[in-house]
Computed example of a mutant assay.
Amino acid sequence: MGKWWPLFLSLLAPAYSSYGQPAAAGSSALAGDCGSKAYQDSLVARYLDRGAHRISHLSPQWGQYCDSLIAACPNIAYAYQQKAMPLIKCGDYAKAFPLVNKAVELDANRWLAYRGFLKCIFTKDYTGAIADFQRVAKLKPNGREMDHTYSFFEGVSELELGNYKRAETAFAHDMALQRGTDGTGEIHFNTLFYAGMVAAASKQHAQAELYLQQCLKVYPQYPEANYYLALTYRAQGRPALARQHLEAAQRALTGGYRLNEDNIFYANYPGQITEHEVTQALKQSGN
């Protein structure tokens, strides 16, 4: 018995030494039922909650934790999305999207809208984004992604494709969903901003002015809303008001205000401006 005890412990060691750590190459996790949600949850807790999420997503270990989870259970969609996330933030879309596609394949209900968001904001694949959001709308009618309705992202995509009537329809639906059945819900200022951009692009200057003014009531320091409202006033032959809002945009940018979305640190949103655009517009106005 004595001589077998050390051997028994040595066989147990690999399994337990990896608890909360990335598995070594060629090692395997403790056997379990990958069809069991409870077992999947235990692995997510082990490799992500107590592993990857305790370190920087820029660390090579982040990917190793995700690989360990995938090796243990290759049917957990979240593992592929989490492995893709640092790649997306670093702009390595070629490596990220096969992982995101795998997550969608395993759980379209959860990750299809997320992929549509990435296509709209990160890779500028607006046609692909629209297709994803229209598909997920059939799975989850009136769902949301990144704090916005699916129609919001369809509207942004149609705007960027130059399909202004479709964009107008999408934002009208977005606003109706936000107002709710009782009509009292508040409209997100970015919906008002992009609806204003659509109206401006369609040369509906009065409507653009209305949307952008409503946007600025909610977020007065919004640089982009001030900038595009200035261009709207300029198009209407109102130079004093145009200059006033260009100067407001310049002050806002200098003060650190930006288009307010979580992912502006990793991707430029449609219509996003810098101080350069404002400076050039002020020069054109004779300032």
Rank of each mutant, 00 (worst) to 15 (best):
G2M: 08
W5G: 01
W5T: 11
P6S: 10
L7Q: 13
F8C: 09
L9G: 03
L12D: 08
A13I: 07
Y16W: 14
S17W: 14
S18A: 15
G20Y: 12
P22F: 10
A25E: 14
A25Q: 13
S27A: 15
G32V: 12
K37E: 11
A38E: 07
Y39P: 00
Q40G: 11
Q40H: 04
R46Y: 01
D49S: 13
D49A: 12
H53M: 09
H53K: 12
I55D: 04
S56Y: 12
L58V: 00
W62H: 14
G63Q: 06
G63D: 11
Y65N: 08
L69S: 08
A71I: 03
A72F: 10
N75R: 14
Y78I: 14
A79V: 13
Q81E: 13
K83A: 09
L87T: 10
L87Y: 12
I88K: 03
I88W: 06
C90E: 13
G91S: 09
Y93W: 12
A94L: 09
A94R: 14
A94P: 01
L99H: 07
V100Q: 09
V104I: 05
V104G: 04
D107W: 05
W111F: 15
Y114C: 01
R115N: 13
C120I: 01
K124G: 02
A129C: 13
A131H: 07
A131C: 03
D132R: 10
D132W: 08
Q134N: 15
V136K: 04
A137G: 15
K140L: 13
G143A: 06
E145C: 11
T149K: 03
E154W: 05
V156L: 14
E160G: 01
N163H: 15
Y164F: 15
K165Y: 07
E168Y: 04
E168H: 05
A170V: 04
H173M: 08
D174R: 09
A176N: 06
R179V: 07
R179I: 10
D182C: 01
T184K: 15
G185N: 05
G185W: 05
I187H: 11
F189C: 11
F193A: 06
M197I: 05
A200W: 11
A201V: 01
H205G: 00
A208Q: 02
L210F: 09
L212V: 05
L212Y: 03
Q214H: 12
L216D: 06
K217Q: 12
P223R: 02
A225Y: 03
A225G: 03
Q236I: 00
Q236P: 00
G237I: 01
R238Q: 09
A248Q: 08
T254E: 14
G255W: 02
R258H: 04
R258F: 00
N263M: 03
I264V: 12
F265M: 11
F265A: 15
Y266I: 00
Y266A: 05
A267S: 07
Q272N: 06
H276K: 12
V278I: 10
T279E: 03
Q280L: 10
K283N: 04
K283P: 01
Q284R: 11
G286R: 02
